[in-house]
Write a protein that binds this DNA or RNA. Structure first.
Lengths: 260, 260
DNA sequence: TAAGAAAGTAACCAGTTAGTGCGTTAAATG
DNA sequence: CATTTAACGCACTAACTGGTTACTTTCTTA
């Protein structure tokens, strides 16, 4: 279905990349498809008597997924500029030509990886279901989640850093990101409002500033864990250090919002 | 004097870079020299009657400084991996060969640039003279300084990010950084202690955690200003937005330390 | 089952990039 | 003034890098 978007590449002049508009469509389709990936139809059994699902020799979706996975790691490790297309194709066990077939260019691949990364974190956040929790608990849970997510998905941070080095030129083109972001901001807005109503939080706090601060105190710690460990002469990634920091972060946010 | 270290390059096998130890010495010497740069002896006037200081055609220090300046900008703009040695030499109006003459390699150049950047910010911090200010004011002034410094020196942030992408391999080799860092931590430690003694701050706050948090809330905002402006659908670098954030940051830190 | 479409491959290319060999010229030194 | 030392520049290269051409193999469908 969505494959139709890629056909242009083959028939048109090879120098003609997809324009920005096409790219958005491609991404949207890919992301939507990704969420359905698990129900992806396996080869329809021509012989119903044969119970063994023969593994596809050629599987566009699987190849694409392998490329995306390898690319995420490479981009996270070396940044957009430092990543090597050859390394990605090698790690993905896919021919380099496939990258250009599916993603058009190195930058197109980076954009998809980045978009997927954002969609992943925003989706995970929505699953937290904070709107039914007590405000203080909801906030604590969000801080905890943010911390854990960065800890378990360090690639996210590196990808975002790389994107900012490029002045967000890839994210600018993305449409879905904005949809997800709005839901995210309104989530914190809601917690804040409920906390004020319950007399627990002070009023007048900008949800965007709070959002930024919640991200900041975890993000900074993780992204600067290497230089930080040298500057402060302590292993910031030691188990104790991590636990201590998380406690400190929760404390910081609760003190920030609490009505005196 | 320190030039002697580089001679090895000329006589020895060209493939033999300086070892880590030598590098440290070179850096130390360079940084110390940099602080004396202003009193650098100008060509001793052979003709005392001649009042015009003839501009040196060959000036090692000046060339080195131009390279360092151009390199800082290039590295900050494109990261260590994305920066191009040719571009640096061109911008510095120095021959590329000079970069290898003075800094040994692209990485050697990066290390020097990074070290200088750290020394610069730590030096500026020390000049704040916070030890004679009232604790609350001292802390506010530090938050304000950190904010302004990141705002006016965005290269610092990009350099640090790039260094963390490389797992701090360059900073690890640096000795001076540790000396400067200790002074920096003890500065905040001192403010905290005085605040507790005055009954203004609560006790038991880890100065390192506070330090990290002060940096984090400003650093994150700046480093993610591009993606942030998209995600939050507002121009984070607009004048109002900057002022609002600074106010929010000061508030965050004061609430964090204050005795209820 | 024939034929078209899609998936996949290997070899290649043109431009780039960090790094050098070697020669030249200005300045310091005695 | 002569000689040494340090600053500087040109031209070059080997390895790399994103991207492509031309082709084969497998799958789908009329």
């Amino acid at each position: 279905m969505s494959q139709v978007f890629f056909d242009a590449e083959k028939h048109g002049n090879a120098r003609n990349r997809f324009d920005a508009g096409d790219m958005v469509c491609v991404r949207l389709a890919q992301v939507l498809r990704a969420s359905l990936a698990k129900d992806r139809p396996v080869t329809p059994p021509t012989e119903p008597a044969e119970p063994v699902v023969k593994p596809r020799v050629r599987d566009a979706e699987a190849t694409k997924a392998r490329i995306l996975d390898a690319a995420k790691k490479e981009f996270a490790k070396n940044g957009m500029g430092g990543a090597r297309v050859d390394v990605i194709s090698e790690k993905a066990k896919a021919n380099k030509r496939m990258i250009y077939h599916y993603f058009g260019s190195k930058e197109g691949l980076f954009q998809t990886v980045l978009e997927n990364a954002y969609v992943d974190i925003r989706t995970a956040e929505q699953k937290l279901n904070l709107d039914h929790l007590e405000p203080k608990l909801a906030l604590e849970r969000l801080v905890r989640f943010t911390w854990d997510y960065y800890l378990k998905n360090p690639e996210f941070i590196t990808l975002v850093n790389s994107e900012n080095l490029h002045r967000a030129k890839h994210l600018k083109k993305s449409e879905i990101i904005k949809v997800y972001s709005r839901k995210f901001v309104s989530m914190v807005e809601d917690i804040l409002a409920r906390g004020v109503a319950a007399g627990q939080f002070r009023s007048g706090i900008d949800p965007v500033q709070l959002n930024i601060t919640i991200a900041a105190i975890s993000y900074y710690y993780m992204t600067n864990r290497f230089t930080g460990s040298i500057v402060f002469e302590r292993d910031l990634m030691a188990k104790d250090a991590l636990e201590e920091r998380l406690r400190f972060n929760i404390d910081t946010i609760l003190r920030l919002v609490s009505a005196e």
